Simulated assay, not measured.
Amino acid sequence: MADDKLTKIDLVESVYLNTKIEKQDVQKVIDNLLEQLKSSMSDGKTIELRGFGTFEKRLRKGRAKARNPKTGEIVSVEPHYVAVFRPGRELKNAISDLPVDDESK
């Protein structure tokens, strides 16, 4: 299963191999990009990356009688925002062509 995961370190390595930009510089750019995404989202902005997808906030309704799955206790949940990602058409098309593996169900 670990082969199905791409970490930030893997991403830095891949960009380094494809561009020959120093790894430290690639790491700084990726860290800065992620920080900008987080900062913009926390300011309430929607982030649209054409050809990839859109990051946006969505309001989750509060509930008076939610259940804590760990303890089974009834708790109240206030309305709050969550981050959501909507993939763009190109990303959807790229993923739809992947072969279906019986183990992934």
Rank of each mutant, 00 (worst) to 15 (best):
M1F: 05
M1E: 09
A2Q: 08
D3T: 14
D4H: 09
D4I: 06
D4V: 03
K5F: 14
K5A: 09
L6Q: 15
T7A: 04
T7M: 07
T7P: 03
I9C: 04
D10R: 07
L11P: 11
L11W: 07
E13L: 07
S14E: 11
S14L: 15
S14P: 04
S14N: 11
L17S: 12
L17G: 05
N18T: 15
T19N: 12
K20G: 11
I21Q: 12
E22C: 00
Q24E: 04
D25F: 05
D25R: 07
D25P: 02
V26W: 08
Q27E: 10
K28Q: 12
K28A: 15
V29S: 13
I30T: 11
I30W: 13
N32W: 10
N32C: 13
N32Y: 12
L33M: 13
L33G: 06
L33V: 15
L33I: 13
L34C: 08
E35M: 12
E35K: 14
Q36R: 14
K38R: 13
S40G: 14
S40H: 09
S40F: 03
M41P: 02
D43R: 08
G44D: 02
G44F: 02
K45R: 15
K45H: 10
K45I: 01
T46L: 05
T46P: 05
T46E: 15
T46R: 14
I47A: 08
E48R: 12
L49M: 10
L49Y: 08
L49I: 11
R50D: 05
G51H: 04
G51L: 09
F52H: 07
G53K: 13
T54L: 11
T54Y: 14
K57L: 15
K57R: 12
R58E: 06
L59D: 04
L59W: 01
L59E: 15
R60P: 02
K61A: 03
G62V: 01
G62M: 04
R63K: 00
A64C: 00
K65S: 00
A66Y: 01
R67H: 01
N68Q: 02
P69C: 09
P69W: 10
T71P: 04
T71W: 03
G72C: 03
E73Y: 01
I74A: 01
I74V: 03
S76D: 04
V77T: 00
E78L: 03
E78M: 07
P79A: 06
P79S: 03
H80P: 01
H80K: 06
H80N: 06
V82Y: 03
V82P: 02
V82W: 05
A83V: 12
A83Q: 15
V84A: 06
F85S: 07
F85T: 13
F85M: 15
R86K: 13
R86T: 10
P87W: 14
P87H: 10
G88K: 10
G88E: 05
G88W: 05
E90G: 02
E90I: 09
L91I: 04
L91M: 12
K92H: 07
K92T: 02
N93W: 01
A94G: 08
I95V: 14
I95Q: 07
S96Q: 04
D97S: 15
D97T: 11
D97M: 05
P99D: 04
P99L: 09
V100M: 07
V100D: 06
E103V: 12
E103A: 14
E103L: 05
E103M: 09
S104N: 08
S104E: 15
S104V: 05
S104G: 05
S104A: 11
